[in-house]
Design a protein around this nucleic acid. Structure first.
Lengths: 146, 146
DNA sequence: CCTTGAAGCTATAGTTGCTAGAGACATTAG
DNA sequence: CTAATGTCTCTAGCAACTATAGCTTCAAGG
């Protein structure tokens, strides 16, 4: 039996995250020790590894919830799981396209700044006026990072 | 003079988002009409377009705040703006690499679904066991999004 | 001129996927 | 036995918005 700390270490998931997953129902309520500490077995470790892995691949917790409920009924056809994965793939492809355009734009911006004054600096200019952009990166999806 | 709705339409930003930007100090407080409605001029439109554009390019609001403060004092050297752009470029390149790996992984998963049972489903199987992966996509950065 | 409906206002709370902190109890190494 | 670490619950916070409620203001049609 694993304490929550060992479980987290084995699965590569932080302790508060595990408690969070339990709270939102992604993990079942764990059994407790005499002193009220959570104890986990191999099944919990596998489930958590599944979640961790799917998160690594960019699946949302909602999608993971669906995938888990599918894998809990293994006699059904797997079309649904396939659809979820395909949707994820499409999303990844959209992001790739957008990031590729963005990369080109940033490279252009960086190249053109040669240490002059802001007044001559295209970084600001490019961002202020879309017509100076080489690519069209106008899309409403959120893409913000760290 | 533009009302907030027109401004939003012109800049491609939703109305509540504009009010949010004002609230966090990214946009200055707008002047008001007799009936207490916000009114905007061309300067505000440009500034908002700048923000929208930078968001599209993946800049965080913090980075945008810096860029705006730079462009508000155009006599400074543009080294700082260049540094911001370079940092963004590095970040974008990291994300691109990661997404490319994810895409390969997801394609592999998706290709092999032939309408069988969940029990044999490649998607679930791959998610449950990282050793079935061809690439190492284990990185802690958050990359998810709706 | 008056009404109606869209657009605006404020303020608050919700979203996603965690992360951080406080203060108390449990377990374990020396 | 004590000290250090681990775990407990609970609450609040992060980015960057989005949505709701309940109001006021504005523009256009009849």
């Amino acid at each position: 039996m694993l304490t929550i700390g060992k479980l987290g270490a084995q699965a590569g998931v932080k302790v508060p995250t595990i408690r969070y997953y339990e709270q939102i129902g992604l993990l079942p309520e764990a059994g407790r020790s005499a002193g009220n500490q959570r104890l986990y077995g191999r099944k919990a470790l596998e489930r958590l590894a599944f979640i961790r892995h799917a998160r690594d691949l960019g699946f949302t917790l909602e999608a993971i919830r669906d995938l888990l409920s599918l894998s809990d009924n293994p006699e059904q056809p797997c079309v649904a799981a396939d659809a979820i994965a395909r949707a994820q793939l499409a999303e990844v492809e959209r992001r790739l396209a957008r990031l590729t355009a963005l990369k080109a734009e940033l490279e252009r911006m960086v190249v053109q700044c040669a240490g002059g004054k802001i007044a001559d600096c295209r970084v600001i200019e490019v961002l202020g006026d879309h017509s100076l952009c080489s690519t069209d990166h106008r899309h409403p999806e959120s893409e913000a990072g760290p």
